[in-house]
């Protein structure tokens, strides 16, 4: 019974790759946001320049936050779902092993008792 489960996990893991790939493929907005996150030291020097630029950076930072939270949300979803599925699978496996052992003992006992 664990084979379909393994297959399910594999397929679902493959699906998980998709949003990651999509995020890499998103050219217009994501890299700009990532760039502003990568250089946190620069804005300090830039504040002396035009206030319009500071405003723009603020908008950019907010945009960056929105993307980060989006990825975090989807990561949480799939961690929870897979964690749950994994725990269930573990449990089913353990119970199944226990069940086989008990059935064997029962058959043994019944054979001995006639």
């Amino acid at each position: 019974m664990s084979r379909p489960l393994f297959r399910a996990l594999g397929l679902a893991a493959a699906c998980l790759m998709l949003p990651v790939g999509a995020s890499l493929a998103q050219p217009a907005e994501a890299p700009a946001a990532a760039a502003s996150a990568a250089s946190p030291a620069q804005p300090a020097a830039a504040t002396t320049e035009a206030p319009a630029k500071a405003g723009f950076q603020q908008v950019e930072r907010a945009e960056n936050l929105r993307y980060r939270h989006l990825w975090m949300a989807y990561a949480v979803i799939w961690l929870l779902v897979f964690g749950f599925a994994f725990r269930t699978w573990q449990r089913t496996r353990d119970t199944g092993a226990e069940l086989d052992e008990l059935k064997r003992r029962l058959a043994e006992l019944e054979a001995r008792n006639g």
Partner: peptide, 14 residues
């Protein structure tokens, strides 16, 4: 379900 989730992600992100 797997196909559905994949399509769902594609729709959501793209």
């Amino acid at each position: 379900g797997a196909v559905g989730i994949a399509v769902g992600h594609w729709l959501t992100f793209e």
